[in-house]
Design a binder for these strands. Structure first.
Lengths: 137, 137
DNA sequence: ATAAAGTCTATAAAAATGATAGGCTTTATA
DNA sequence: TATAAAGCCTATCATTTTTATAGACTTTAT
């Protein structure tokens, strides 16, 4: 399951996507619309900004806006950013690799092999679904 | 990522699958082989038993054994049992459904729609990969 | 100058996960 | 039939992760 962080991020991105005609959108408005903590959302939007997905304007009249096309924001990117690895095991993670303690030899481990396949197929799904898909339904 | 519970379960199932010629296998031996806590493993194997995946024999000379064919033990079953939902959001879970608080209307929610698709495609993967796939590599 | 809005860091609270403990029941066998 | 081996069951504790809050700081329009 996705963490609330990621879920909130998706709601925020959706909201921003629906308000692309406006220059900027207030954190406050997004938080209110979905009944979530504004302070918590602040951190999330900041991360999205640092990842190059959002832009922002400080000061009075400021706010956030999408900096990328919705079609260029795949679920995989959002999930990795806020939740971490998409792979089911650290030993098959492309971006967050770590060996598994209980596995004596990765090379001969059947679990490892199968999980690599699962990872690749899962990735195909999450890279192909984008914010655009969410917006157009 | 999978919890350690699920990871350990997969290792235990693999071990049991590799020792199908023996009548029973000791929890102790599985725990030792992978360097994991025996007591923790006990609980996990019990769950697998209650789910009809493993059988056991009590008392001296007892132990655990596979009660199903490896090809009939899909990853989806093991994951659901020990980790819970496969869906990324509660509002699209087949087995653990719950509405999402921050979503005003599920019917018009684009996130919901996309996540249903992700769930279905993910499920296809996890239902098709079985213990047999792990054993045969 | 002031108020509005994002930025940043730290900390606290809550929940989930991982691990341990100990007694109970069952069963083979000496 | 006593004993030791092995799984069964429940409770509790410890750790880690997640979620949420707080408050001071910076930037900017008016």
């Amino acid at each position: 399951m996705l963490s609330k962080k990621t879920k909130y991020a998706l709601h925020a991105l959706t909201y921003l996507g629906k308000h692309r005609d406006e220059k900027t959108v207030l954190i406050h408005d997004i938080a209110e619309e979905h009944g979530i903590s504004q302070k918590f959302l602040e951190n999330i939007l900041l991360e999205l900004k640092k990842a190059g997905i959002l832009g922002s304007k400080k000061g009075k009249g400021g706010g956030y806006y999408l900096i990328k096309e919705p079609k260029d924001i795949p679920l995989s990117k959002v999930i990795r950013l806020l939740d971490g690895p998409i792979a089911l095991l650290p030993c098959v993670s492309l971006n967050y690799y770590e060996p598994c303690a209980e596995c004596k030899d990765e090379v001969t481990c059947g679990i490892n092999k199968v999980m690599i396949q699962v990872r690749d197929e899962t990735l195909k799904i999450l890279e192909n679904k984008t914010l655009e898909d969410i917006l157009k339904t």
